[in-house]
């Protein structure tokens, strides 16, 4: 994403020369249209959040964030994310390992099933848990008899959040691990590494940045989920209000500054998520460039320095890792 057109137009530069490019006026018009569209829909709303949040001064801003209901909403949001994100990360890594590193029947079906929560409206995600655990749901009478509260309580909020953020880590890792193949893990095992050791020393460094972005995005969505949580929460102030629900309560009470103050925290989280994403993409692009250079160098000295089977590392996949991996050591030894 966001790649450079120059990458596939290295020596001849077709975009610079007419008639395979547009006139200066067309360019300006198109850039202007794109920027105006993005300004109207992205930049202005984001800027407005901070302008309104600080509109009544820093004192009012801090007061809105430290009053008891806000503190309890922040605490509940943190608790929810602290349960949902690690579990979904564990699932994402397990799913990516099984799907990307092995060949088996039904793989496509499994991948589609992982995407299922993306297709489901957040309100329906809340609805299915109400049907299971609500007073008139399947397990409702039993839960009531045993005095267990799930709907209108923290467990329901955590479950709905987990459902909505379920695919994020897996979605980020599966294509990444599929592209990396299994050769490195196989050589690690051949050299006597154990299964978990192989994962920790070979796979994990390779997927590190993708994993970090998946976790951060999952976290941002977990903290910001509104639809699913508002169905199962019951909006009990100071008890079952997460940050997005607290924003809603304040906004409907015409406490605009306070609601935008809480919103600004979530907006900051979103911006931080985008920064991490940019860093991850920059690192990946840099590593790919290094890999490409290494392959080029390997080609120059081919035959003389390395035996054929080692120098023919097809895309220099090993160089995607930031630390030297086993195949690098192999190169050095050869």
């Amino acid at each position: 994403m966001g790649g450079n057109p120059a990458s596939h137009a290295c020596s001849v530069s077709p975009w610079g020369i007419a008639p395979t490019s547009e006139s200066a006026w067309t360019r300006r018009l198109l850039i202007g249209t794109a920027l105006a569209f993005l300004a109207l829909f992205l930049f202005l709303p984001l800027a407005l959040v901070f302008v309104v949040a600080f509109g009544s001064g820093v004192g009012a801003y801090l007061a809105a964030l430290t009053e008891p209901d806000a503190r309890s909403a922040i605490r509940l949001t943190l608790v929810t994310a602290a349960v949902a994100v690690p579990l979904n990360t564990l699932f994402g890594v397990a799913a990516a390992w099984a799907i990307a590193k092995f060949e088996f029947r039904g793989k496509n079906l499994l991948t589609t099933l992982i995407d299922l929560p993306f297709a489901v409206s957040p309100v329906i995600a809340g609805l299915i848990f109400v049907l299971l655990f609500g007073v008139r749901g399947w397990l409702g009478p039993w839960l009531q008899a045993n005095d267990i509260r799930i709907i209108f309580a923290t467990p329901g909020i955590v479950l709905a959040t987990m459902f909505v953020t379920f695919p994020f880590v897996a979605r980020e890792l599966i294509p990444l691990m599929q592209a990396q193949g299994t050769e490195e893990e196989e050589s690690a095992l051949t050299l006597g590494a154990g299964g978990f050791q192989t994962f920790r020393r070979v796979t994990l460094p390779n997927i590190k940045w993708g994993l970090i972005y998946g976790v951060i995005l999952c976290n941002a969505r977990a903290m910001g989920e509104f639809g699913a949580v508002s169905v199962v929460s019951g909006h009990i102030r100071g008890h079952t209000n997460t940050m997005p629900l607290h924003i809603e309560v304040l906004y409907n009470d015409y406490q605009t500054t306070a609601s935008f103050a809480v919103a600004s925290l979530l907006a900051l989280l979103a911006v931080a998520t985008l920064v991490v994403k940019s860093v991850v993409e920059w690192k990946t692009a840099r590593n790919q460039a290094i890999a490409a250079r290494e392959v080029a160098e390997d080609d120059e000295g081919s035959g003389s320095r390395y035996p054929m089977d080692l120098s023919a590392d097809p895309v220099g996949v090993h160089a995607l890792a930031c630390e030297p991996t086993l195949s690098d050591t192999q190169h050095a030894e050869a």
Partner: peptide, 17 residues
């Protein structure tokens, strides 16, 4: 980088904004 903002920005925030 900003194009991805709607993925990360909570809907309640974009809603009130």
């Amino acid at each position: 980088a900003m194009v991805d903002l709607p993925f990360a920005l909570p809907t309640a925030v974009s809603g009130i904004a």
